[in-house]
């Protein structure tokens, strides 16, 4: 039986001048699942995600959403950036309403109010980004991305700039939001711990040019407790993913000698 696929990357390649950022990269994202993409720095993770969002095209291959080829930004795909990427001259509410303004759409205020409460930002609507902490800013940017009810949420190392504790809180928040909305999420991260906590599937990319090296199923029940996360299965998975990533860079180092 063919597994259902929400978002598919088929033979994706991206060249910048003489350099291949991605080469023959393929992966499937099942509907309502969370897939994390990890890999060494500069392996084309962000390039891959921006291609999936339709923000830039591919040199070869294609991205399919529900079987249809993506050729540009798609209303069904929400994007959360590295750092919150809020517009500093707009207050929090005006930032969240920005997508509706651009699209000339009437915002669903009830849903936005619910999301704000969900992430604990009720009462901060009139605050400007520079009055909020990094974690609060990133929570606002998640609300902005979810306010349009996308069926796919792409997150590009969203918590990389946050401290470890805030990061864990944010991971739990993403899990809670997922349990409520079951939005398909593709999550890019440097943190194996974060990937294993959040994902149904972890995809490990090779160094540049990025290709899929390995994929790991992460079949634990949700919500994922500290006990699960401290268990042997998680430990083993962490070890194998690390071996994948560090093995690669060691091989590179050897090849360079």
């Amino acid at each position: 039986m063919a597994a259902e696929v929400k978002l598919a990357v088929r033979g994706a390649g991206k060249r910048y001048g003489e350099m291949d950022a991605l080469k023959d990269c393929s992966l499937d994202v099942a509907p309502n699942s969370i897939v994390s993409i990890v890999g060494p720095s500069g392996c084309g993770k962000t390039t891959l995600l921006w291609s999936m969002s339709g923000l830039h095209g591919l040199t070869s291959g294609e991205v399919l959403l529900d079987g249809r080829r993506i050729t540009g930004p798609h209303p069904d795909i929400g994007l959360v950036f590295q750092e919150a990427n809020l517009l500093p001259w707009r207050n929090l509410m005006d930032n969240i309403l920005f997508p509706f303004e651009v699209k000339h759409q009437k915002p669903d205020h009830g849903w936005i109010a619910h999301l704000l409460e969900r992430v604990g930002l009720t009462g901060f609507e009139k605050n400007f980004p520079n009055e909020l902490s990094g974690g609060m800013q990133q929570r606002a940017s998640i609300v902005r991305a979810l306010s349009l009810r996308p069926s796919v949420l792409l997150m590009d190392e969203p918590f990389g700039a946050l401290d470890a504790f805030t990061r864990e809180e944010m991971n739990q928040l993403v899990e809670e939001i997922w349990m409520e909305t079951h939005t398909t999420i593709v999550f890019i991260t440097h943190s194996i711990e974060e990937a294993l906590f959040l994902s149904d599937k972890v995809v490990v990319l090779t160094p540049r040019p990025g290709r899929v090296l390995n994929t790991y199923e992460v079949p634990f029940e949700r919500p994922r407790t500290m006990e699960i996360m401290a268990g042997k299965e998680v430990y083993d998975l962490t070890y194998r993913i690390k071996a994948d990533i560090y093995g690669q860079s060691r091989m590179q180092a050897r090849a360079a000698e």
Binding site: G54, P73, L79, F81, L87
Partner: peptide
């Protein structure tokens, strides 16, 4: 910021 705006078309 420009990518953000473009992502919303």
């Amino acid at each position: 910021k420009i990518a953000l705006a473009r992502s919303y078309g």
